[in-house]
Design a protein around this nucleic acid. Structure first.
Lengths: 205, 205, 205, 205
DNA sequence: TATGAATGAGCGTTCATTCAT
DNA sequence: GATGAATGAACGCTCATTCAT
């Protein structure tokens, strides 16, 4: 009952502004981004932005959350399916690389600034906590895949899970950054395969 | 002797300012950093900074270069010694983690902003090239270690070197970021060992 | 009707700022004038000035142009009427002296700085050309009066027109400067008559 | 007795600085001129300038005085000789045009800024008085020539001396300004002749 | 609700002036 | 005396935020 009436108009506007902000923040970073450009991109007047978000900082944090949520949702969904650990890792990485092809700048923004913001003194503790929770959720997801792989006998029982998680995340990030710098798309599926091959088999001769 | 008089005092001041700038830029990023804070931290007046660096941008670029040079020098030196690929990778990672314990924020600054700056339109092509050369030098160094490991028969002859480099760098960066967020030091030697073990042996059961 | 709506309010504000700027520039010169004082005199905040003029230099050039245009318009109009050369020169001088009584500082500003600016390297060639065109227009106007006087037989056929123009302009300027320094108004009509008498009759006994 | 021993070194240095200042002030105007450039041109260090002149303003006023004194001395000397009023006026104008060929910017600087400075609130009354005395001396000199010409019967007994002085000065200034803008020298002697011819004979047909 | 003109705190940079050497 | 590195007040300009319409 009514828990979802909302005002469709309003919410649409909110989203438009949020998306515009994501573009601008991704392109310029927090400080160099200008509220006017956000407004322009959203097709509204400067003052209107303030009807939906009380300040630049609030808009930024909302943007960050939206991006991270979306990204995490996609990654989790990719890793959620049944299948072997190898398959699920492949899906995870492929999903990330595919997203990077479309939104490299957003993902890098999120990866970089979210860290920076959870450190800043002036950000409220509640906000910081929410930022940290994303990291927990991300690492937790990968950890889950790995541990189930161990239990299934597919991965080494003595696997150093903590390091393995860092390795997966780090490799993802390294390619996201690369995508940011070169024009051409990452070959998502192939690349995911190569990464997982190496992760599983190791480098030893 | 005496071939080293030249700037006894001047160069010291230059370094003081550079170091102060590194602190501030690392803590705030380029745009949020204020020249006055740099000056304060260096113990000089605002105008003095401009006697040594002609603009905020120039100071930033100089800071970036100094940090990157130092970091790369240490990593290369660590990886340069004789020994097996395993040993050299361990040294490399240990060196990085040790540096991260002392200068996590600087390393992260360099890693993040150097990328961003090589993209910006207003930065001179010469500066961009220098920034890019750091990336080349870094990846080249790791590549060298791996290829020599292959030739020595220590690493798989069919090793996917490109992906392996990304994996090493990514893992390093992942831990540098982690160090940025938690207070306690990374156990550099132990952690390097664990990472290399996993890299070499792989995750497969 | 109504073809004049457009900017009812905006243009008024623009003019207010321009006029305030004219006062300040006239009193202090370009470099010593402060944008904040311009804003104060116009009754707006500092930032508002920049909504109408993109920089101090642009504001100055606009100011100069407005003053020169107004001044030249009035002089040309005065000299345009029918009548003998004597009458037209009288009108011209009287118009100038009358204006000097009201705006001596502006006229002197224009006379002095417009010259200086058409020399400066950093001013765009287009702007320089516009400044130069004012000088051409001014000298051209006086020249016209003199040449028509010659053709009408009222002035000597061998009149040294070039020198005569300089003499008229120089005398005008000399009195404009004098007005700048003393409080009391120039007796415009009488003075114009005395100047023209001397110009025509010469000093010879 | 000793009233003139002076320290030859010191006075030479003072003059060097003064002359350098004249160049810089003439080229840039008071506010845009920088003390460092004055020092450079004088071949001394920035601080040294302050050993000889206590402030930028004092240096400027001293510069103005030196220029004006020199200029007036030369004009007076030229007008002082025996001869008819025509000859003396010719000498006067020729001297001015000759000086303008060499020092147009200085003369214009003096003409323009000296006026401006005698108006400024912050300049001491004593300084203002000295500035005004130059104007008196200049007009007085020309007035003398004219009045002697009248007494000698060479000029009209009813000559409007006040206007005539303004006319002579104005014409001089008009050509000084012109010299400032074009590269080529004024033909001093010829131009003086043409101006005096017109002044004496008038424009009437 | 939406607008965008207006605001003013804040920052990068300059440069006259000082003072330790 | 002479130097020039250091200082810091001052100014041009930006942009997040407000508010009258």
């Amino acid at each position: 009952m009514g828990e979802q009436q909302a005002w469709p108009e309003q919410e649409a506007r909110r989203q438009e502004i949020l998306w515009a902000a994501a573009q601008v923040f991704a392109a310029k970073g927090f400080h160099a981004a200008r509220m006017e450009e956000v407004a322009e991109r959203a097709g509204v007047a400067k003052g209107t932005v303030y009807l939906y978000y009380p300040s630049k900082e609030a808009l930024f944090l909302a943007t960050l959350e939206a991006i991270l949520t979306q990204w995490l949702d996609q990654l989790e969904q990719a890793a959620a399916g049944p299948g072997t650990a190898r398959e699920r890792l492949c899906s995870l990485l492929e999903a990330n690389f595919t997203l990077a092809n479309r939104h490299a700048s957003l993902i890098c923004l999120a990866a970089q600034e979210s860290e920076a913001w959870s450190l800043r003194a002036q950000v409220g503790e509640a906000e910081k906590e929410r930022m940290r929770s994303f990291v927990v959720r991300l690492t937790g997801g990968i950890q889950g895949v790995l541990q189930e792989g161990i239990q299934a006998g597919e991965l080494r029982p003595d696997l150093d899970v903590e390091v393995a998680v860092a390795m997966v995340l780090g490799t993802m990030h390294a390619y996201n950054l690369r995508r940011l710098h070169q024009r051409e798309d990452l070959p998502a599926r192939e690349l995911a395969g190569r990464v997982v091959d190496l992760l599983l088999a190791g480098m030893k001769g």
